[in-house]
Design a protein around this nucleic acid. Structure first.
Lengths: 236, 236
DNA sequence: CTGATTTGTGTCGGATACACACAATTTTTT
DNA sequence: AAAAAATTGTGTGTATCCGACACAAATCAG
């Protein structure tokens, strides 16, 4: 191939995926135990090199499909990580992707085949390269954006109860929320549709199952603006 | 150099800068008329290839310094643009950087030497490659983030009046704001310090000059949360 | 000095946020 | 069967905030 930028250096480009899930109690991160060099045996994010004729986002989706068997994952680009020596083997620029999945939907076999594990964010092992930095950034991103946009639903099953939703938010922000105010606020957005069913798993009073109004979800992507109070130290 | 990823493809990496300024009336964008191939004679963002031993952010700052002579520019990474054919000459991944500068501070000679021009956002020429897309994204980013964080000050001189600040916000959001509510809100953040001086340029009542409290700017980076009303179609 | 323009400050009514109380449903216990 | 325990659903009041709006002060042109 004839190139017209002959004197410039070309470098490797990879994508790494920060994949969050929620098990009903706490936030989980999907990471792999590497059975390949370099850093074999250590923990890292799932990632891979970008192919020659592959768009960035397509590369991320390929990697996500490989690991989870899922195609319709919520993905956002977090940003490029480009420190010269971030990969000690050879300079590699990595574009990090932020992903939210329903933890019960993924292909467990594929996950096993990649030696992948869901780990709690609170006691996750140290990761290779700058992957810890990426996870920190992704968690900040989640907290920041879940307060402004209704992206939290991506972590829940199709049908869910308001108490389940509240537990998700309490996990994300590591804080307790008032049940009554939470319910009122969430219902006032108009994003939830009563399915008419009730949660049969509960051992006490069965909560109503809701689903997300997908059409409103598009129109009201800003519905959570100012949703979580005092994330912002607006006062004092 | 011996590499351990022998079978992967390496690609060119560039950075492009979306540089905003404010002239007191409207938002401006700094772009260059290319006097080099490819696309010579057309308009584009200022950019360049990443050097072999240069960090990403350092590359962006180098390019910004080249063009403006400024070192302390407010810069954020916007994200990576990686479409396979975005540069028709050879595949190039570009990391876009968002920059805000005080339009009166830059080195006019350096700008001239690069055939650069400040253009109004409302009638900017078409740019090469995917640079128009980058500008659109940068403008969205500015609107989104200036509503949440006090970054607008980066576009103003050290000392400014509240009416000047209001004009800036009106330019960013292309809407009129109530003078009295704006003043009350802005002062209630505690970010502004009265310098004791007045704007001698005015031909009518001279407004008080304020400066930003830099220490509080750090502590209260969230002070503008919910600052611009109804950016969010929260209702209906 | 009068009028035009711009800047600074105040007020009022409606809406919203958050703290908190009570009623209803389901299973377990006695 | 009745009471207790756990969880879910709905209501109420007060303090605060938001946005609409009125008036006073400063500056200059004429």
């Amino acid at each position: 191939m004839m190139t017209r930028y002959p004197h410039e250096t070309r470098i490797l480009v990879a994508t790494d995926c920060i994949i969050f899930g929620f098990n009903g109690e706490e936030l989980k991160l999907l990471i792999i135990k590497r059975n390949f060099e370099p850093e074999e045996g250590k923990w890292s994010l799932m990632g891979g090199f970008l192919h020659e004729n592959e768009d960035l986002e397509a590369g991320a989706k390929r990697i996500l499909y490989d690991l989870t068997g899922l195609n319709n994952i919520y993905v956002e680009q977090l940003g490029a990580f480009g420190k010269v020596h971030r990969d000690p083997v050879e300079r590699t620029l990595s574009v990090a992707f932020f992903a939210l999945i329903n933890i019960h939907n993924h292909d467990q076999e594929a996950v096993k085949a990649h030696y992948a594990n869901w780990v709690s964010l609170k006691n996750k092992p140290e990761l290779i390269f700058d992957h810890d930095e990426m996870v920190t950034m992704a968690l900040d991103h989640l907290r920041y954006n879940a307060a402004l946009h209704p992206i939290g639903f991506e972590l829940l099953p199709e049908e869910f109860t308001i108490p389940q939703l509240q537990k998700l938010y309490e996990a994300i922000y590591d804080m307790r929320l008032d049940r009554r105010n939470f319910s009122r606020k969430i219902l006032s957005t108009g994003l939830l549709v009563d399915t008419g069913w009730k949660n049969e798993h509960s051992t006490t009073k069965k909560a109503v199952l809701y689903r997300l109004d997908k059409e409103k979800y598009q129109r009201k992507f800003y519905a959570f603006w100012n949703f979580i109070p005092n994330i912002n130290p607006n006062h004092a």
